[in-house]
Write a protein that binds this DNA or RNA. Structure first.
Lengths: 350, 350
DNA sequence: TTGTAGGCGTTATCAC
DNA sequence: GTGATAACGCCTACAA
C-alpha cells in the first residue's frame, strides 16, 4: 500500500516507469492542466503514484513553470503577545484555499525590508502580501523597497498591500480613518465632548489616519481635540501605559480617553487602575481593533471592530486572481461596538 | 545601479555573460560553498549581479541540490484571537536565523494532517517543525501521519516535534507535567487544600499532562482532587466560561480553581464575574502559560510561565543541526508566577 | 582556478 | 492521445 520503503525520493520517472508510460503522460495525469489522457493510463498512473507514495516536487514545478504556487506574507515583526490580526486573517484565508504561505518579517526596518523582499523574490511565489498594518511607519516605504517590489512585479509576481494605501499595488484598505470617524460620531452622540487622544507614533500612518478620522467627525459637530490633549506613544500596551501616565501628569482631565488601538487602551486602563481611578466613572476609554483576547477586560472596552477575516479573504483573492489591469483597491469598513467603558455621558463636562 | 528595467527575470547565465565568465564561476562566486574563485572574477561577478539585480532562484537551487533551505512549520489551527505562542516563538527564532518559514495548518484533523504533511513533503524543506501544542489530541497522531512524516525523513528531511513527546523525532519537550506539578506545589504551600480542575478535553495530551502533574504534587502532600471536582472543557476561553458555569451549577465550591491554561482561566473568570463572585475572595484562580496579552486581567493571574522563546530557539537548532544520530529530546521547564488571583490561604477550608 | 557538460524533477513543444 | 526531446535555472563532478 505505502512504499516508504526505499530511502530515496520517488520521482515522476519512477511513477511513469511503473505505470508503463512516459514521463509526459504521467505528468499530465498527475499535475497537468489539459486532461487529455486516456482513462486507462490515467488510472494506472494514479495507482502507481499511490503505491510508490509519489509526491510532486514543487520546487521542480516552480522552476519548470517559472513560478511557484505559494504565497509570501511580509509582516513587520513578530511579537510574543499578539500576532498581527491581519497576518492571521491572511493565514486563515490561505488555509481555506489550501495555499501554502511563507512568512517573513521585515523587522520594522526599511533596510531589512529590502533585503527581505529580495529573498522573497528569490522564492518566486505567486504573490506577496504586505501585511503592514499597525506599526508600519511611513518611512518604511522607502525607494529601495519599492524598487525591489517593482522588480518582483516585473518578473510577473503580484503584490497585494493590506491597509497601506497609496502604494502602486492592489490593496485592501481597512477604513482606519472611517474607524476613527465612526467612533467619534457615536461617542459624540453619547454626549461626550472633551477628549484626550493617545495617538500612537507621529509617523505611523495607521495611527495618524485613525486620529484624523476621529477629529474630522468631531469637527463636523463643532468639537475638537486641542493639541494639548494629544499624547503620542508607542503602538502597544506599554505605550498606552506610559501615555496614560503622561495624561495623569498633565492634570487636564477629559471625559474620554481615545486610544488608537485596543492594546494601547489596555495599557492605559492598567495605568488608570494603578492610579485608583474609577472606570468608566472618572474617565471613559475607547479603542479600535476589537482584539478578541481583550474581550474580557473590565470595563468591557468600546472599540471598532475591523473586518479582518474579510480583509484576509479579499487579499487572497486579489493575490490569486489573474488581472493584468490597473492596481485595484478594495475598501473595507469596520463598525463601532459600544460597551461598558463608555456609558452615555451627560451633555456637558464639569 | 539597479536595473529592474527589463521585464524578464535575470538568471545566473545573464550575470555570467555580463561578467565574462562561465555559469560555473558565477555560481561559485554567488552561492557556491568552496571559495575557490579568483578575487578579480569574483568582484566582476558580484558587480554584474548587483547591476542586473540578480536574485538566485531558490526553487532551482532546491531542485539542483535536492532540498530547499527553508523550514516548514505545521500548526494545528490558526485562531483569530491568539497565535500559538509556540508558532510565534519558532517564527522569531527563524527570523533571527534569516530562515524562511512556510506555515501550514493541520486544521485539527488527522485526515487533513496527513494531506497537509504530504504537501509539505512536496516542498522539500530542510526540516518540518511540528508546533502541535495545546489543542492536539492524542488521536491526531494516527498511523498515516506518522507514515507520511517517516517518508519525509527517509527522503532526508528532518522532523522536530515541539511539546509532543514520544514521537520518533527530535523533540523539544515543554514540561507540561512539571508545570502542573510546580504550580500545585506552590499553591499547596500557600495553604490551599481544596481544588477544582478545569481540565480541558479528555484526549488532549497537553491538558492531561498538566492535570497529572498537578495531582502528583498534591498526592505527595496527601491531597487529592476527587473526580467530582474535575470538569472537562474545550481548550479555550469559551471552554473555561462553560466549565465555570458547570462549577457553579454543581454547588461544590473549592478554594481554588485550577484551569489548565490561562485562556481557559480567563473564560472562567468572566463567568465568575457574571455570577458576582468576588475574586480571589470567593475563589482563587490559577492557570498555565502566562500569555502576555492577559497580563492585565484582574485579578492578575497566577500562572506558570513557559519558556517559549527558548523552545523556539531549541527547535530551530534541532532542525538545522546536522545530526544523523538517534532522536534527541530537549526538555524545558517553566516557572510559577504567583499573582493576585491566589493570595495566601488559611490552613483549612471552611 | 576555470570552463564544459550532464543532471536535478517537471513542464511544454512537437511530431507521431 | 502519446512519447521523445528540449527547456527551466542552478549545481557539480570532471576535465582542462
Amino acid at each position: 500500500m505505502k512504499a516508504s520503503s526505499g530511502s530515496g525520493r520517488v520521482t515522476l520517472t519512477d511513477v511513469a516507469r511503473r505505470a508503463g508510460v512516459s514521463h509526459a503522460t504521467a505528468s499530465r495525469a498527475l499535475n497537468g492542466s489539459a486532461r487529455n489522457v486516456r482513462s486507462e493510463y490515467r488510472d494506472r498512473v494514479l495507482a502507481a503514484a499511490a503505491e510508490l507514495g509519489y509526491v510532486a516536487n514543487t520546487a521542480a514545478q516552480a522552476v519548470a513553470r517559472g513560478r511557484g504556487e505559494h504565497l509570501a506574507l511580509l509582516v513587520n515583526g513578530i511579537n510574543d503577545d499578539y500576532f498581527s490580526p491581519i497576518a492571521s486573517a491572511v493565514l486563515r484565508a490561505a488555509e481555506a484555499d489550501d495555499r501554502m504561505v511563507t512568512m517573513i518579517s521585515s523587522r520594522n526596518s526599511p533596510q531589512q525590508a529590502t533585503r527581505v523582499v529580495s529573498s522573497l523574490r528569490a522564492q518566486r511565489p505567486r504573490a506577496v502580501i504586505l501585511a503592514g498594518g499597525r506599526s508600519v511607519t511611513t518611512g518604511v516605504w522607502d525607494r529601495r523597497l519599492s524598487d525591489e517590489l517593482g522588480a518582483y512585479q516585473d518578473e510577473g509576481g503580484r503584490v497585494v498591500a493590506i491597509s497601506e494605501e497609496g502604494l502602486p499595488f492592489d490593496t485592501v484598505a481597512v477604513g482606519n480613518r472611517a474607524a476613527g470617524f465612526d467612533l467619534a460620531s457615536e461617542l459624540a452622540d453619547l454626549g461626550y465632548r472633551e477628549f484626550t487622544v493617545l495617538a500612537g507614533p507621529p509617523d505611523a500612518r495607521t495611527a495618524y489616519d485613525r486620529v484624523q478620522g476621529f477629529r474630522a467627525a468631531l469637527a463636523e459637530r463643532g468639537l475638537a481635540v486641542p493639541e494639548s490633549r494629544v499624547i503620542h506613544c508607542d503602538f502597544d500596551r506599554d505605550g498606552g501605559y506610559a501615555a496614560a501616565g503622561e495624561y495623569l501628569r498633565r492634570r487636564n482631565p477629559a471625559q474620554l480617553v481615545f486610544a488608537i488601538s485596543d492594546t494601547v487602551a489596555v495599557g492605559a486602563i492598567a495605568r488608570f487602575r494603578e492610579a485608583a481611578l474609577d472606570l468608566p466613572g472618572d474617565v471613559a476609554v475607547a479603542g479600535i481593533d476589537d482584539v478578541p483576547a481583550l474581550r474580557d477586560v473590565s470595563p468591557a472596552l468600546t472599540t471598532v471592530r475591523l473586518p479582518w477575516s474579510e480583509v484576509g479573504r479579499a487579499a487572497l483573492d486579489l493575490a490569486v486572481e489573474q488581472t493584468g489591469t490597473e492596481p485595484r483597491v478594495i475598501r473595507m469598513r469596520g463598525h463601532v461596538v459600544l460597551r461598558e467603558s463608555t456609558p452615555p455621558a451627560g451633555p456637558a463636562p464639569d
